[in-house]
Nucleic acid binder design. Structure first.
Lengths: 331, 331
DNA sequence: TTGCCGTACGTAACCGGTTACGGGTGAGCA
DNA sequence: TGCTCACCCGTAACCGGTTACGTACGGCAA
């Protein structure tokens, strides 16, 4: 019903299915005349090979699975874009599956990947690492992005601590004294690393006013309001991501603080919006991250059998600090 | 090698593969004891069903294919987000395939979908419609988004003409006289509809200064610069999408024009950035568009056999005009 | 003529599931 | 005891491709 099969083509060309397969896949040892007949028959029937059947017998799907939570939007979509580009260039498809609704739902989504993909790109900053490893289908090559302490394969990580430290040094350089931090959710590994990296890079013993947000703009606004009531004297705040920073900026301006004269603000991610509001931030090139992940995975898949690439290396990607108008006056 | 098969489970539980299949799929007519043995064996072996094999015999993949060009970023990713949400809620996966590099590459990508997906969501505003229809694998249910004149199935379209007309009326209402339009690429159907809708809603015979961009910010800036040299007196410009509008705004400000006093600017799309630069625009809820497309497709897939839903209806989605500071003074 | 080899092709097994069909077993009933 | 009928369960065919293996045949050297 879905269309002509290889047997239909074989019948019409009056050859065996084996010859059709050989002819269509460009194998040698097919007589030119036969090949021509097969191609004509396929064309006439509008034959399109059935990818599912093909991958079953080849044990190769030419697809890679992508599992990640739909958290802070920009990030998600940029990574996908990078993945899609790299995958498509190598002839691979992407299979998406977002994992928000609970751990069992996630387990189901992960298991459903077996037999559908050749490998996985996973990003799960919010799950306890051992649990996550256990959920992965066994023996499915996986490269992780920003997934803490996962030792099962190649990993890509952005240097959250290093980035946060750069902000701390920048604050000190421009002469700030009273620091605050708006953190992400406590269950998020990126959030924790950014907080710790910031604290560690300030002179020992420096007090830091803390508030927690949820990586959304509204959450950032709320956290900032909270900080203003408890620690009104702050003159520098490092926000764990850009979206929260936007909310924080709004709250500060509404409260009459001048940016950056009264208080300096820095974010993390460099989402497209950041340039427009002139937000100082760390640039993490998300599309590039996705592209690298895909490339790494496909390299591993196609080098299979070689023991060469087997060492599960972890790349640490250092985000550059982009200094803009929320920390230093612009011309 | 990839893992245990159903036959391994059968062997270990000392039953037939049929019983394993029945037990795991919750069929009735399996003795409770047998079911327990099967489950224990599956657990012990870490058995995960092979989705590929399953979908081959069921002729059902529970996946939907998404083909679209990677055009103007925000749009792409928001639609994907909407699709992913709706699909995941119904237990479907998404298979991505972007189609940029030439028509033959696109044809290959489309054909590769057969046997891998149950249906397609396609968006191809830049292709001549008959060509596109011909490339689709035959008999694959498809819902199109903003693909002009495609009559092969359900379609979702945003009302480009209506939106553009709303801008035209708005310009007239606020007393503007000398109009300009920055259009998108001439091969893009959305771009053409927006241009025509705008022109048609102005009083007959009104002259409109025209320039063409490529839907990017830089392109918008260039087009605006061009307009300023040829028609310096314009006081209202409708830009075919928001990204170009951002570029145009920058050019106008650099040229010393006050917004909105000297010239009013409106865009199309309402990307997240638009709110931050206070850009008047048409709001097209892209995630919602994706969600609807997925829902439509899955409804059609699961209602298969019923003649009820067979009428290929086309939904026209009317984007509301969001009036902001680039056309009227803000408090 | 016989033997050998290479080319072109067909037969059938296989990938890993699902399921139509039929067989065996025990309970219930005449 | 013999019959019917559920209920469980196993055998084998099937989904649509790929491919190992075997075969038929023509050409060529001994």
């Amino acid at each position: 019903m879905t269309g002509a099969t290889i047997r239909d083509v074989a019948r019409r060309a009056a050859v065996s299915v084996a010859s059709v397969s050989r002819a269509l896949n460009g194998l040698s040892s097919v007589h030119p005349d036969t090949r021509a007949r097969v191609l004509a028959a396929a064309e006439a029937l509008g034959y399109v090979p059935h990818a599912g059947a093909r991958s079953l017998s080849l044990a190769r799907t030419h697809a890679i699975g992508v599992v990640m939570p739909d958290l802070h939007g920009e990030f998600f979509s940029e990574v996908i874009r990078g993945l899609a580009g790299a995958a498509s260039a190598r002839g691979y498809h992407l299979i998406l599956s977002n994992i928000d609704e609970g751990e069992d739902h996630m387990a189901a989504a992960l298991r459903a990947m077996r037999g559908r993909v050749d490998g996985l790109v996973a990003m799960a900053p919010h799950v306890a690492p051992p649990a996550f490893a256990a959920l992965l289908p066994p023996r499915l090559p996986t490269v992780t992005i920003n997934t803490p302490d996962y030792a099962g394969g190649p990993a890509l990580r952005v240097d959250n601590r290093g980035g946060a430290a750069a902000v701390a040094r920048h604050f000190v350089t421009i002469g700030r004294k009273r620091f605050a931090h708006i953190a992400g959710p406590a269950i998020n590994a990126d959030a924790l690393e950014r907080r710790d990296g910031f604290a560690a890079a300030l002179p020992a013993g420096t007090p830091i006013a803390m508030a927690e947000g949820d990586f959304t703009e509204a959450g950032g606004a709320r956290a900032m309001a909270e900080l203003l009531t408890t620690d009104a004297a702050i003159d520098a705040v490092f926000v764990a991501n850009d979206m929260m920073a936007l909310g924080a900026l709004q709250t500060l301006r509404d409260a009459g603080r001048r940016i950056p004269q009264d208080v300096a603000v820095a974010g993390f991610d460099d989402v497209p919006l950041a340039r427009y509001v002139s937000l100082t931030t760390l640039r993490v090139n998300m599309a590039d991250l996705g592209g690298r992940a895909a490339t790494r995975l496909i390299d591993a898949l196609e080098g299979e059998g070689e023991g060469a690439g087997e060492v599960p290396t972890a790349d640490l990607i250092v985000p550059p600090l982009i200094v803009r108008g929320t920390t230093v006056m612009e011309p």
